[in-house]
Design a protein around this nucleic acid. Sequence first.
RNA 1: GGCCCCGUCGUCUAGCGGCCUAGGACUCUGGCUUCUCAAGUCAGCUACGAGGGUUCGAAUCCCUUCGGGGCUACCA
Length: 489
Amino acid sequence: MPNSQIENRPVRVRFAPSPTGDLHVGNIRTALFDWAYARHTGGTFIFRIEDTDRERVTDEYIQAAIDTLKWLGLTWDEGPEVGGAHGPYLQSQRLDIYAEWAAKFLSDGFAYHCYCSAEELEAVREAQRKANVAPGYNGHCRSLTEEQVASFLAEGRKPVVRMRMPEGSTTFTDLIRGEVTFDHNFVPDFVLVRADGSPLYTLAVAVDDVMMKVTHVLRGEDLLSSTPRQIRVYQAMGLSENEYPLFAHLPFVMGQDNAKLSKRNGEVSIAWYRERGFLPEAICNYLALLGWSPGEDREDVTMKELTELFTVERVHSSPARFDMKKLEAINGDKIRALTPDAFLEKALPFLTDAHILKGSSDEIALLKKALPIIQERVATLAEIPAMLKFLFVEKFEVEPDSLAKVSDAESKNLLKVAHERLEKLSEWNHAAIEGALRSALIEELGLKPRIAFSAVRIAVTGSHISPPLFESMELLGRESSLSRIKGLI
RNA sequence: GGCCCCGUCGUCUAGCGGCCUAGGACUCUGGCUUCUCAAGUCAGCUACGAGGGUUCGAAUCCCUUCGGGGCUACCA
C-alpha cells in the first residue's frame, strides 16, 4: 500500500483559497468539507492564504475570506489570526522558503532556467495548435550551453525556473475517483518561479503542503490535472511515495446552465447570501448536500452532526447544480428551528439596517412579542422588515394595490361597523378582537370571513398580506388600530 | 484538437447484483386546513443517456457510443 505512512499520521487538512474576490459558493463547499473532515477525524484544520499572485489577491479579499469563514463557524486550528507551529500561513510571507527550494531544485537538476519570452512561447503554442499536437513547453531551454546562456543574458533576458518533467507517467489514488494516471507527454515542463523571482502556485502549494505536514488534500476538481505537477515537486523535495498527502478532488458546484457557478448564472458570493438573510447553518447544511449525503434519506443536519457523519467515502464524483429554491427551503426550516432569543438576535440587525426601528427598549419589547407570529412565515431574515413594518412606522400608508380593494362603499361600511364595535371593546387582546369582529361582520353582516377580514387587514397593516390579523391588532394597540380603520372610512 | 473527470426524477440525492413495479428532499400540480401569507398535512407528475455484453438475475460489473465539464498560463 503506497500511502500507509500518511494514513498513520494525525490528520491535517487545509483549506487554501486564493482570494481574488469574495469567497463563493464553490470555495465554501470545499472549506466546509475540509473542515468537516478535520473535525470528523479529530485532526487539524489549517487555513492558508494562497496569495502568490499579488496582482489579483488583495488584502481586502483576504480579510473578507477570514470574516466569511468565521461567520460560517468554520473555525481553524492553524492559520491567519491564530497562528500555529508551521506558519506563516500567508504565502506572500513565505517567499524565502520557496526561493530556497527553487534554488535546490536548480542545483539538483530537477529544474532549469528557461529564457524563452512570452512571445516565443505563444508562437510555439500556436504552431502546436495548428499541427494538432498536445500543446505545452517544447523543452527548448532544457539543455542550453554556457554560450547560449551568456548570449541570452547579454540580451537582457531574465529567466524563469522551469520544472523538468521526466519521461513516463504519474499515477495516484484519488480518494473519490480511484486511480488516476497522467502520461507525462501531456504534462509539460512547468514554471515554478517567475522571471521576477516570485513563486507560482505550482511551487508554493506543494512546498507548503509538505512543510505544513498536510495529510489530506480535499480540493476542487479543477486541480485534478495539476496533481502530477504537484507530485513532481514532492519528488524533487525528496519525498517517497508513501509520504505524499492523500488527494480527494471534490466535484464542482455548478450554476443552472451547467457551467461552473459564476456571477452570470447565479449569485455566488457568500457575502451576498449573508445580506439576503440566510443563516450560516442553512448555507452549510445545503452546501453539505451538494456532492455529499449522509444517506438514510436524511437531509437535515446541524454543524455538529455534519462533523460526526462526514466521510470522504460518501462524497460524490459527479458535479452538482446549485438550487436557490432548496437553499431557501432549508433556510426557512432553520429559521423556524431558532429559539425566540436567537431569532431576535438574528432579526434585529435586519430591522435596524432597514431603518424600521432604532433599537429602543420599547421597540425591542414590542418586537419580542411580534417575532413569534412571523417566525414560521419567513424563508429569509431579509423578509422580516417588510412584514413588521406596520408595527413601527411613524407615517402609516396603505399600499396602492391594497387600497384599491377597500375603496368601494361596501368596504367602507364594513370598516365603519368594525370600528364602532371595536371602539366599545373593554379589553384589547386578540381573542376579544376576533370575537367582536366575527360577531359584527360575519354573523351580523353575513360576510365571508376572508372578505371581511381582508378589508380590516388592509386598513390596519396596509397590505392584503400580513401576519395573523387579530394578533397584529393586539400588538399594534387600540389607538393605532382604530385610527387606521377610521382613516379609510 | 489532446489529456483527464463525470452521467439515477426538472434539481440535490438513496442505491454499491436479487430487498427496485427505483426510496427521500426541493420545485411544480391538485386536495385538506384556514382571517391573508406562510406553516402543517394528503395525493399526483417525473429518472437509471443510448447500444452491446457478463450473469439465473444489472441502476448496480465490462466495452462502445453519445452527452456534459475541467485542464491545456510567467492564474489558482
